[in-house]
Design a protein around this nucleic acid. Structure first.
Lengths: 213, 213
DNA sequence: CATTGTGAACTCATTCACAGCG
DNA sequence: CGCTGTGAATGAGTTCACAATG
């Protein structure tokens, strides 16, 4: 195993990618896979695959490749997705509702254990999942009581920071922010942003500039 | 202006970020902003802000800073978001519906001009926006007739590639893929992926490993 | 002997440090 | 004098190329 150097963030992203391709490979009946094939599926360089895995151990068999199922298990452990996680969501609008109903999350061990909103008409409502929408003012207390680990923000950007602060007060240490604004948190808290508009801006930029060259 | 070197992709991402902070600054009544302040708001290094802008021109006033409104306009032009764009969406499930209703898109000039699904119960349905859901089999023809520029994929991953191929057949050159799978397209087509599960995996990885150091 | 694992080379991106200028 | 603009220095991440090996 490579001496434990700093692991690029991009490596983690790709492990997640590899993992999903391995699931598909297993489903399709493959038992072994080479770095070349896995790389092709994920649209990366084969050396990249080997190096990424090399940060965490030696999982392959020289001259043969990687055992599809074993490698899945290894990556699951590395990413810590071999257990379940407790999430709470703030903002039960269109997007929030969509996430709450998303089959993919529970299937991967990510469970919403609470949902909050400010809207009086939504508070008290029971969601398709059986979860009851609570008043956002209960967030701090409830998130603490239910031992929520990941807070998901799907509010309008104007209140995203406020909501983040509520999550912080409940000692949550990870936030998934869907609002198109930057939220400021202390170093002890992790934040990942999912911002559609940035992706669209990248597309329009490239659409404009690819013609110009 | 810096000689036109290759522009880092990350620079484009940040321009999008800068732009939104500039909107907020204008809203709050600021007329000028320094690279230091803008950098703080976006959580990047001030030199980074100046270098990013430097790729495209000299927009600042030495000793003073940047004119909030002027810089907005410049970035809008660079990102090509100073015009409107025509989008079509495939997959009118929870997520698709949420995107179709999202206020932010039309506000920024991104307009859905068509929506497609395979589900017989959904086809023909009129959405809150007034848009009628069409049969996915019409995609190629309709996308071409309506001159769709950006295709949005919110189908289950199992059919994402098929749908991408339909979009390609209609000569679309940019795709926004929300399904958690890699889609393969020729070089002439741009793809941006928005994958929630990757972001969650990054959080769980870090949650596990931050404790270990 | 095909394919992994990995140091070394390379490419790309960020930050520094200061000259240039309003 | 303060803040921008940018070459040069540093740092991070990717790819190469080949030795190691099941």
């Amino acid at each position: 195993m490579e001496k434990s150097k700093k692991i690029p963030k991009a490596t983690i992203k790709r492990l997640s990618l590899y993992y999903r391709q391995l699931e598909l490979l297993e489903f399709d009946g493959y038992r072994m896979v080479s770095s070349e094939k896995l790389a092709w599926l994920c649209q990366v360089n084969p050396a990249q695959v080997r190096k990424d895995l090399g940060y965490f151990g030696e999982f392959g068999i020289r001259g043969v490749g990687y055992d599809v199922r074993d490698l899945q298990r290894e990556i699951k452990t590395i990413l810590a997705v071999n257990r379940s996680w407790r999430m709470a969501i703030a903002g039960v609008g269109n997007l929030g509702s969509a996430l709450l109903q998303h089959q993919n999350f529970p299937a991967r061990g990510f469970h919403f254990v609470a949902a909050f909103d400010v809207d009086r008409d939504k508070i008290g409502m029971t969601l398709p999942s059986g979860l009851r929408v609570r008043d956002i003012r209960e967030l701090r207390q409830v998130a603490e009581d239910l031992e929520v680990e990941i807070g998901v923000i799907t509010t309008p950007p104007s209140v995203a920071q406020e909501v983040a602060d509520l999550f912080l007060a409940s000692h949550i240490s990870a936030l998934l922010n869907f609002s198109p604004t930057q939220i400021h948190v202390p170093d002890c808290c992790l934040v990942e942003n999912i911002d559609f508009t940035i992706k669209l801006d990248i597309l329009t930029y490239k659409l404009k500039h690819e013609l110009d060259e």
